[in-house]
Amino acid sequence: MSHQVWLHQLPHIVAANAPAANHSVDWFHQLPQNIVIGLEQGSLYALVALGYTLVYGVLQLINFAHSEVFMAGAFGSYLVVDAIVGNRHLTGAAVPLTVLAGIVSGAAVGAAVAWILEKVAYKALRRNGAPKLAFLISAIGASLFLSNLAGKLFTRVQNNAFPTYFNVNHHVFSIGSADVSLIVLIIIATAVIMMVFLDRLVNKTKLGMGIRAVAEDAPTAALMGIDIDRTISRTFIVGGALAGVAGFLFGTAFGVGNIMGFTPGVKAFAAAVLGGIGNVRGAMIGGLILGQAEVLISALPFVGAEWNDVVSFAVLVLILLVRPTGILGERLWRAA
């Protein structure tokens, strides 16, 4: 099974990148535009990366099926938006309300799938005290299962466009030479709101305190009366909701498909590691840095868009060599 080639193949990015590959002068000329694109990608990475990092925080496990949660959110919101839009032509307040419905349904489906995923693929193993790799493999099994079930239920064709209820490429405003389209604006705005929301959730609420306590020291947290099972379950729900929203935004911009989760999932995981896995703010920063690095470096004249993925991993490796626990470091550092 081969994964699809992602962002750089898609029209509005290719349009932005293509001239940049010609002359070095163009790189500077295109810089503002590329920063906007990098911000857009980075926001999506960050939203998905938060799910990885939250789960890693409480379980010290890579949730490999997280990319399928992302995919499920995209399909779920697609179905809802499709039901709302149908063959009608939406106008006025109906458009932002539909976007909101897409965000909410994406979050709901993502949360639900993540919750079930935790119940099926993780809880039983936790009870059995399975070795760490067994979790990874069960997550891979779940990932394989979910993406193919979605393929069977919906379609195995990739890049199915959302129903057109607004012009995603509608030009909103420009900053210098950078054009900001409507979808870019929506993605960045939603991501920022979600991240602020999450940051407050983790740092200010009781649930957030529980998550941090379990991440720090699960046995002690249990002694303090924190229900570990419930905290883990809710961590999955929060991460799943974020991934579901990201799925909706991604789907609106680039279309949905049953293996759409794989590449963004891997990148987001890299972003989480880059920021310091287990560290919530690290995931946000990691996502943004990775998004920028990918766009800016592959836009360099001697690199080219086909080296996109190589760039992101090279950046990751370089940063890890300098800072072995990521940019912000792990909050849950366990010393010898």
């Binding site: 009870r127 379990v214 570990i228």
Partner: peptide, 10 residues
Amino acid sequence: VSAIPRGGAM
């Protein structure tokens, strides 16, 4: 400390 916190709060 086991790598994976096990279920079951008090």
